[in-house]
Computed example of a mutant assay.
Amino acid sequence: MSFSSLFESGESARNRSHFASLVSIAQSSGLKDEESTLLSRYKSVLDINDSDYEEIMKDPSKFPVFPPNTSEERIQWLHDLFKIVFADHEMDETEHKLLKKYAVALGFNDEDATYLTERSIEIFTGHLSLEDYRYLLNKNR
């Protein structure tokens, strides 16, 4: 471990951790163009340098999940994971299992992770009830 890495910010480590989770889920069913494009955006947003990017792309499992501190950030990270999964408008069984696994790793208990995963799938696939649709339309008013 280098001397400079001893003083690495927690945010930087969490960003790499989150990016590795995104890469892992994108690679789980074969990396597609839409996912690669989205990963490039996340690389910039999360301030991932080129050497970390290459290392993460080679083996994202080397980077453990360091969950964010707030529930708002946890929801944001879960949302990011769903955006990667649905970038190609498909979700396979492997991705479904990984989403639940990451929800637990982010700090949600099993029951909440299951609920959030299933509810998010309904939202991302457009399978909303009319009541939910109305709620989402009027939420920001």
Rank of each mutant, 00 (worst) to 15 (best):
F3E: 07
S4D: 05
S5K: 10
S5G: 07
L6W: 04
F7I: 13
G10N: 09
G10T: 07
E11G: 08
S12T: 08
A13Q: 09
R14W: 04
H18G: 02
F19M: 14
A20T: 10
S21W: 01
V23I: 07
I25T: 11
Q27V: 13
Q27G: 13
S28L: 04
G30H: 05
G30Y: 04
L31F: 03
D33C: 13
D33R: 11
E34R: 15
S36G: 15
S36F: 00
T37N: 12
L38P: 06
L38R: 11
L39C: 12
L39G: 05
R41Q: 14
R41N: 09
Y42K: 08
K43A: 11
K43N: 10
K43R: 01
S44G: 08
V45Q: 14
I48L: 06
N49Q: 14
N49A: 12
S51K: 14
S51W: 06
D52L: 03
E54Y: 05
M57L: 10
S61L: 06
S61A: 07
K62W: 03
K62L: 13
F63R: 02
P67W: 01
P67I: 00
N69P: 01
T70Y: 02
S71D: 02
E72T: 02
E72M: 03
E73T: 05
R74S: 07
Q76Y: 12
W77T: 14
L78N: 06
H79N: 12
D80T: 00
L81V: 06
L81C: 12
L81H: 06
F82H: 08
K83W: 02
V85D: 00
A87G: 12
A87Y: 15
D88T: 14
D88R: 14
E90R: 04
E90H: 07
E90Q: 10
E93R: 05
E95T: 13
K97I: 05
L98D: 01
L98Q: 04
L99C: 10
L99G: 11
L99F: 00
K100A: 09
L106N: 04
D110W: 00
E111K: 00
E111P: 00
D112M: 11
Y115G: 08
L116M: 03
T117D: 06
E118G: 10
R119T: 14
S120D: 14
I123M: 11
F124E: 04
F124W: 08
F124S: 09
T125D: 07
T125R: 15
H127Q: 15
L128R: 15
S129L: 08
E131M: 11
D132S: 13
Y133E: 15
Y133W: 13
Y135I: 00
Y135K: 05
L137G: 14
N138I: 00
N140W: 01
